[in-house]
Simulated scan of single mutants.
Amino acid sequence: MTKTVLCYGDSLTWGQDADKGRHAYKDRWPSTLQAALGNEVRIIAEGLNGRTTAFDDHLADCDRNGARILPTILQSHAPLDLVILLLGTNDMKPVVAGSAFAACQGIARLVRLIRNHAWPFEFDGPDILIVAPPKICETANVPFAASFVGAIEESAKLPTLYRDLADELGCGFFDGNSVAKTTPVDGIHLDAENTRALGRGMESTVRMMLGL
Score class of each variant (00 low, 15 high):
Y8C: 11
G106N: 06
R196N: 01
K93E: 11
A192S: 15
D186E: 12
L74V: 04
Q75R: 15
H117P: 04
A156K: 12
A102Q: 12
H58E: 14
A24D: 13
I69Q: 15
C7W: 01
L161I: 07
G187P: 10
P126Y: 08
N116R: 13
L59V: 08
G21C: 02
A36E: 13
L80H: 09
M202C: 13
R22S: 01
K157C: 12
G9F: 05
G50C: 03
P94I: 00
S204C: 04
G201Q: 01
A145M: 08
F55G: 11
L212D: 07
T52C: 05
L70I: 01
Q75F: 10
C7G: 04
L74Q: 15
A140D: 14
G15I: 05
D56F: 06
H117A: 15
M208G: 11
A118H: 15
N39A: 13
L161Q: 07
R207G: 05
T195V: 14
A166G: 12
R68M: 09
G98C: 10
E138P: 01
E203F: 02
T182P: 03
A156F: 08
N194A: 08
P184F: 02
D27T: 03
R64C: 07
T205V: 15
L129N: 06
M92R: 10
L12H: 10
I136D: 07
S147E: 03
L165Y: 13
V206E: 10
G211F: 09
R51G: 11
R112C: 09
E122A: 09
Y25S: 14
D17Q: 07
F144K: 10
G47I: 12
D124P: 07
D61R: 13
I107W: 00
